[in-house]
Nucleic acid binder design. Structure first.
Length: 308
DNA sequence: AAGACGAAAGTGGTTGA
DNA sequence: TCAACAACTTTCGTCTT
């Protein structure tokens, strides 16, 4: 990642992720795209009048899944156009409008509603645009396969968003999604599993390290503490402490320990709250970490330092 | 008094017969 | 479809700072 950018100018968050393929730097906290290095938006021609511009323009509106018709649909006629038309054309106008109406099937109407909801939840969680796109795509597929039937639209939206988050390594916890969407946590998880299974979407188990940045900034911990906790996570992974455990619990415990080591103590309660797990879970993971890795010495060191 | 710790019982999901 | 099972939670009592 280029050195120049360290913090998000929008929200001050320090967790920036650099997407090489797109040449973008994105803030994981608020989704702000900070730099788009490789993309050149300038036009390479000048327009002298609108007609000339029309001819030279090679691309249409961007295609996007966050519009119910992928942004490619056409609207037949506005009211304002009516005034310009004479009798024959007027009939034609109504005929076309009728068709347009019929074409918008139940699926499209559903999508229109659902995507509005999706955008709402996504912006509430400050998710990057790329995740929003992905989840819209997932939802669209789900509707086409009739997976929404028998489930509430909102819960499928939440499930799709959760899946998209996971695929883009910007994990949000089920709790956060549940809070943002107003759907019960259980339900979000259930539709998430259902949708991904039915659509054959493979999701890698989420990496605890992905949560560190967000938790750390929520707890106002230093960058050193953050990188230390990632080190701890790595050695924990080698000691096979991570498999089968909830990634949030592990991330929380690693963060808790490294905060102790750096003398930035947070209570188990505080860490537990931001990570969405209980103190007990943190304690269990914490104990395992101490058993396997010899971190006790490091903690003692900082304790002595403090007394001086 | 607050935080840390640990035991015990309960919950929801996965797995394998 | 059901029971066994692991991970995690809730609750509560005790110890430590």
């Amino acid at each position: 990642m280029p050195e120049a950018v360290k913090k998000c100018p929008e929200c001050g968050g320090a967790s920036l992720s650099w997407n090489r393929d797109r040449g973008e730097i994105i803030c994981r906290d608020c989704g702000l795209v900070i730099e788009e290095k490789m993309v050149d938006f300038s036009q390479e021609w000048r327009e002298f009048d609108s007609e000339e511009g029309e001819k030279r323009r090679r691309s249409g509106a961007p295609m996007t899944y966050t519009q119910y018709d992928q942004g490619l649909g056409t609207e037949v006629g506005q009211k304002a156009d009516l005034l310009k038309l004479g009798g024959k054309d007027r009939n034609k106008f109504f005929r076309l409008r009728k068709w347009q109406y019929r074409i918008s099937t139940a699926i499209e109407r559903n999508l229109k509603l659902a995507l509005a909801e999706l955008k709402r939840v996504s912006s509430y969680l400050k998710l990057p645009k790329s995740v929003e796109e992905e989840s819209a795509k997932i939802y669209t597929l789900a509707v086409q396969r009739g997976l929404v039937r028998g489930r509430s639209m909102e819960s499928v939206v939440a499930g799709a968003l959760y899946a998209a988050c996971r695929r883009h390594d910007v994990p949000r916890t089920l709790d956060e999604l549940s809070e943002a969407s107003g759907i019960e946590k259980k339900e979000v998880g259930r539709t998430y599993r259902f949708v991904t299974r039915e659509l054959g979407i493979t999701i890698l188990p989420s990496n605890p390290a992905d949560y560190i940045a967000r938790f750390a900034s929520a707890l106002k911990l230093s960058a050193e503490t953050q990188s230390k906790s990632i080190e701890i996570l790595e050695s924990a992974q080698k000691a096979e402490l991570t498999s089968g455990r909830g990634p949030t619990g592990i991330a929380a415990a690693a963060l808790y320990v490294s905060a102790l080591i750096h003398g930035e103590k947070r209570t188990q309660r505080e860490v537990a709250d931001v990570a969405g797990v209980t103190e007990v879970t943190i304690r269990n993971r914490y104990k395992e970490l101490l058993d396997e890795l010899d971190l006790e010495d490091e903690i003692k060191k900082t304790k002595k330092k403090k007394k001086r």
